[in-house]
């Protein structure tokens, strides 16, 4: 028996919206501690990892660990039948469920849907707990804007960290550009830029993955970039009171 009720159903819709361009079919894992999801994109360059803690739900029960294989595209079709202010409940009775039930509740309406599940034998990757040598916290809409703008100039974006801040740069056929974001300790938390740089890094990434993932900015006003030289970068959106949505992106390395 599994039941998880989102107080804010819109949050679940934003999460699915943020990952739908990156991953097609995913295994949703549910157990006593909460819900998690880990899936790579088709090119095995990016990995999405979602972690939602049971304490963040209005109601949560999961007697036995469950794996529910679902198509993100079909999940979206079901979620499109819900309102952004609905409470959303996920439920299944069986131990080996073949469908996942959804209840959308608003003041004047209650809807019930069933999504057919699929069996996915997806390989899971072990993501080692890493001490990152550069960790940058910055406004998510600023990161989104920089990626979108520099992404117009070149498909690869460079990221260089230092004690002073973080620099994004591109060198393309049409020319080059760089954006340096300085640290600030403004009292407005959503505008703060913080850099913990034990070792500076200088990395290059395919910016289109950032642009696909940055829909997650709707989840949090801040984004955390964790980096070590020649290692995948982690973009993390903290989901208030519930958990986090992370994108791991493998770097591009000079030939």
């Amino acid at each position: 028996m599994f039941e998880a009720k989102f107080e804010d159903g819109g949050l679940f819709k934003k999460i699915v919206e943020a990952i739908k361009e990156l991953v097609k079919n995913v295994n949703l894992e549910a157990n006593g501690t909460g819900i998690s999801l880990q899936a790579m994109d088709t090119s095995h360059v990016a990995l999405v990892a979602l972690q939602l803690n049971e304490k963040g739900f209005k109601k949560y029960r999961c007697e036995k660990s469950l794996t529910m294989g679902l198509s993100i595209e079909n999940l979206q079709k079901i979620l499109k039948c819900s309102g952004n202010d609905d409470q959303i409940t996920l439920r299944t009775q069986d131990e080996e469920p073949t469908t996942l039930s959804f209840t959308f509740e608003s003041k004047n309406r209650i809807s019930e849907f069933q999504l057919n599940l699929m069996s996915l034998d997806q390989e899971q990757l072990g993501v080692p707990d890493t001490e990152y040598s550069s960790v940058v916290r910055m406004p998510s809409n600023e990161f989104t804007k920089i990626c979108r703008e520099l992404g117009n100039i070149n498909e690869a974006i460079g990221i260089e960290t230092s004690k002073e801040g973080i620099k994004f740069y591109v060198k393309g056929d049409i020319g080059e550009g760089q954006v340096s974001v300085k640290i600030n300790d403004t009292e407005k938390p959503e505008e703060r830029v913080e850099c913990e740089v034990d070792e500076p890094v200088n990395l290059s990434f395919a910016v289109r993955y950032f642009n696909l993932f940055n829909k997650a900015s709707a989840l949090s006003s801040q984004v955390i970039l964790s980096m070590s030289q020649d290692q995948p970068l982690v973009i993390e959106y903290i989901i208030e009171e519930m958990g986090s949505l992370k994108l791991y992106l493998a770097p591009k390395i000079n030939d």
Binding site: S43, A156, A250, N254, D255
Partner: peptide, 14 residues
């Protein structure tokens, strides 16, 4: 020219 690396190079399959 830079080459895109795959995640399998960094993360092990469980």
């Amino acid at each position: 020219e830079t080459k895109q690396i795959k995640l399998e190079k960094f993360f092990t399959k469980t």
